[in-house]
Design a protein around this nucleic acid. Structure first.
Lengths: 140, 140
DNA sequence: ATGCCTGCAAAGCTTTTGCAGATGC
DNA sequence: GCATCTGCAAAAGCTTTGCAGGCAT
């Protein structure tokens, strides 16, 4: 039994080729892939998996907390493996690059704000839209 | 010339019935309406405006910074009038209620984090998903 | 009169679903 | 063998676009 199979079993999912392959792609590739990114990787690897299955499997993985889905913007959702380390995201509006970060101070403040309003914080979504800082020093 | 017309002119938009009506609805109604919410209000008011126009006008309003669009989740985007007061949102997962809040400490931290990574903060999106706090005191 | 604006319908893009056959256990 | 899973194609949900006519200036 290969690596990854255990996670699937634990989630109550049969160990099928599409699931193993998709999990593998998520492990190997860049973080933050769209369903289509994954689908194209599968095609590339000559795997005969339909896009519908990719969506279905990703939804199951999300329920099983194996992956997290984000809607950074309008447009397609992106998925990333849940490696157990909670973090937020910064997206460069020029390059599209995604940077992860974690700030426990911000986390604490969020909890406090929710409580101040009589609520319990379940989850949150924080995305910073940034651009590379212009270096004003080297204008020759 | 009625209230609101000036904003439209300033944005370089002709003062047309759909634009005036939509602006009016955004001013009068609850914050955070979907394009369809607005469309239904227009139908209700016997105005003969198409949903395509609602989307087009909202996009123009967004460019003109008269409104802000949010994608709280998957599903339809919501729009709110830009009243000049920046704030973030808290969504109750049980009732769907949206609460606005502002925390300058969090804002400051975001700016600092972006800069620490060599970026300039342009914008951000912060949504807290919450639920009503269970009162554990009155279990009879 | 002119060019911007609009309604309608059709298309677009992302995601979900129904179904018959395939596969894991 | 049986339930779960999958591919395909069709549908669904939200949003955008092409076009011919309408309206503000």
């Amino acid at each position: 039994m290969k690596r990854g199979d255990k996670e699937l079993k634990k989630a109550g999912l049969k160990v099928t080729l599409p699931r193993v392959k998709i999990l593998h792609i998520l492990e190997q590739s860049e973080l933050h892939m769209t369903a289509e990114d994954i689908y194209l990787k599968l095609i590339d690897a000559e795997e005969d998996v339909g896009i519908a299955t990719v969506y279905r499997v990703l939804a199951q993985f999300e329920s099983a907390r194996l992956v997290n889905r984000h809607n950074f913007d309008s447009g397609p959702a992106v998925y990333e493996l849940d490696r157990g380390d909670h973090h937020d995201h910064m997206v460069c509006s020029e390059t599209g690059k995604v940077i992860e970060f974690h700030d426990s101070e911000i986390e604490k403040l969020q909890k406090k704000i929710a409580e101040k309003h009589g609520y319990e914080l379940i989850d949150h979504s924080l995305v910073l839209f940034v651009r590379e800082r212009k270096k004003l020093t080297n204008l020759s």
